[in-house]
Write a protein that binds this DNA or RNA. Structure first.
Lengths: 243, 243, 243, 243
DNA sequence: CATGAATGAGACTTCATTCAT
DNA sequence: CATGAATGAAGTCTCATTCAT
């Protein structure tokens, strides 16, 4: 099988090349930003010539798009996989959050999401078609969260009247907003702890009938007591002011 | 007062010019992105020559910095002001959220935040000093949220063991993550509704003893609460007036 | 004398201003070079506004010209003065050299001469008229050297057949070529020593009887010399060829 | 040899391009000065696009550096070559001087030397490394003069106590100081004559017994003695070579 | 006379992309 | 398929000079 063997080798080499370019570009975009990374640098980092980069990706933007494709593929696949092996809703959310952060932090790819957001708004950089494409990827990925919540509702653990889209925004937005703080102190512990702190409030707010089991006794009496204090304080101020 | 009049006029014109440039740049950065906006375009949009732009702002980056400065000043001031006139913690959060969104949406300035984030991470674009400066502004602004929560805790309504930084991340991250969806449909209602959906879960998770008894206890407690608010407000105003 | 007093004061202030600008520009041109010094820097260093600089000097080039004027005035005057107080030709040359070096080194004004030379060739920067002007200044100054030599000849100490222009080139060229080495180690001793080393060879070659006996001795010695050369050349060639 | 032929052609064309740019830049720098020559002009004169200039030379300064490199290479090589074919010290100096002048005048490259000097002093334009590089080139070149003098001393014709560095300064400084006068009247005669006038005084001052009062006794006897030694040496070499 | 805001030409350089080899 | 030389448009920024105040 001389011919087919040769073809196989060729194909492998081609795929390797493409992967090299993709990887080099990802690393550089993540580290320096999209605009600060020239195609020349990418070619050099990938060990190919400038022309070759354009052989595989018609455009610098196409390259970015391919990276985002890959990235979302990773994100979505790992998320889906993990979900199937975990049953509890809360545990699933913790996993989703940690997986999200970890993949973003792994190759400092925080920049990736930012660029994506960035470009998705920039009208000069992406035609509607492509922009839509990225949105679609993002949609597919974030709906995994929706699925988890829905299943929780179906099982009767979560409040059926939850505002899903808002929770989704809080979940992913919160994770990414805080991510900057985590850059650098990449220790596993930190990530796990941070993830809990983010998920906990959401989890509490989701449950059926709130979480009334916490010490309810204090409530009324204490609140009244404190109200008294406040009125007294205000009275004092009023006295002062009118003196 | 010939001289001083003339000086005033001159000063006004200068400030006007600076404001024009700032405004033009803000609009363009917001619409097209930082990199896609050339200094030439900014100059043209501001009705001045390119050289003049650099007369007022030594660098394109300095211009961006000035814009962010202004933006944060607006954000911080309007937030602080609004807070003083509202007493309830929940109401304050709603205001904070709506104010945040509205200012960002107002001049399509979504891009502003993104750029800020973008730059604050890009190591090649900002020296430590400047990066620190932006961080400081962001810090000052977001701590207003902290203050609101802390006061809520002091008054006894919120759980003293709250994970403040996580809540902050959820609050601002959630708002900005969902903002993209709101771009375009800028109607007041939508924003108000969206804001409620974002704040509600957080609010629920914050309260002492969860919110199990909420529906029943509200009546008496809330009436007292609102009375307190009225007294406090009056006291504050009086204090201000007599200072 | 109210009016004339006022006029005096005004005149003084104007002259002071002009001098300030001149001095600032000289220092900056010397330190950073003509092209690297902007009119803005000059104005700042002189403590005046940019417009004022152009009030006193119509052009940046005119400013340079004025500086060179001043510089040559200093050079020429100090040289002439010094000469009158010294009688010996050798001593005069030593003085001339030291004076030259010292003035150039004083405010690191080496650059001045270079710029002058530089510009005197640059056809785009100086019209013929101005270029000629600088040449004239240089001419006037360097002729002082000529005068010293001529007087030495008249007194019978120097060979009347000296090639004056070549000696002049050697004198000033030698001084300035070596000046770079002296920048930095500005100690008096070094300059004095260096000056002697430059003047000594010239002085030797100038004196009467310098090579008077040459014509006679040449015959035998030179014949032998030429024979040596022929043999050596042959040896070298042979050596090369057989290597 | 299809491939290697093609490669050769390609390489040739590339070298031609580089040479074109180099030549165009040299001519323009020489004619108009470094600062007055824009990269656009250079590109136009070389018949390439502006981008191509930067393809070959990363910077305008790098281009200048390359020119100086080439220039010094020419200067040094031609000087070394010429020296080997001339035996007499005086003749060597005459050659060195004429060669120096002729190369500088050839492509009006006077400006080259000036720029070099200019830059070597301007602290803002060249980092230590590059400045050092140019100094090194200059050092290598000027030491050829030293070698000639040293050999003259060894042969016994020149005073062993000569102040070498001062003579070097006089030699090159004198040549360049007078060069301006020669620009334009480039006739061979003039150059030759001028060179003699510059070398003659130096030559006289160098010789043993220069100005009679120093130990004159040695002269004749010693010269003959040394001539004998030289002939013997040459004879030895001849013997060796013919063996 | 003094100011300094305003100008706009032009400088150097970068970069994505093309195409002949 | 792979190369890398070539392109030229566009970008940011500087600067000498002018002019209204």
């Amino acid at each position: 099988m001389n011919i087919s063997e040769a073809r196989n080798k060729t194909r492998e080499r081609l795929e390797q090349r493409e992967a090299d370019i993709l990887q080099a570009a990802t690393k550089l975009f993540a580290a320096d930003g999209f605009h600060a990374t020239s195609t020349r640098k990418i070619a050099a980092a990938a060990g190919v010539s400038e022309g070759t980069v354009f052989h595989y990706f018609s455009t610098k933007n196409a390259l970015l798009l391919a990276i985002l494709d890959n990235f979302y593929a990773d994100l979505t696949e790992s998320a889906r996989e993990g979900i199937t092996e975990i049953m509890g809703t809360r545990e699933r959310l913790l996993f989703l959050a940690e997986n999200h952060l970890r993949l973003l932090l792994d190759n400092q790819a925080l920049m990736m999401r930012l660029i994506q957001v960035y470009l998705s708004v920039d009208p000069n950089y992406f035609l509607d078609y492509k922009s839509t494409h990225i949105h679609e990827l993002n949609y597919q990925y974030t709906r995994i969260f929706d699925g988890v919540i829905r299943e929780g509702i179906e099982r009767g653990y979560l409040d059926p009247d939850l505002e899903l889209s808002a929770l989704r925004d809080l979940f992913f937005g919160g994770l990414e907003y805080g991510m900057r703080t985590l850059l650098g102190r990449k220790s596993t512990d930190r990530v796990a702890t941070y993830v809990e702190h983010i998920v906990e409030p959401l989890w509490q707010s989701m449950q059926v009938g709130g979480n009334g089991d916490k010490d309810t006794t204090i409530t009324t009496a204490q609140r009244l007591e404190q109200a008294c204090q406040r009125v007294e304080k205000a009275a004092k101020k009023l006295e002062k002011a009118t003196r």
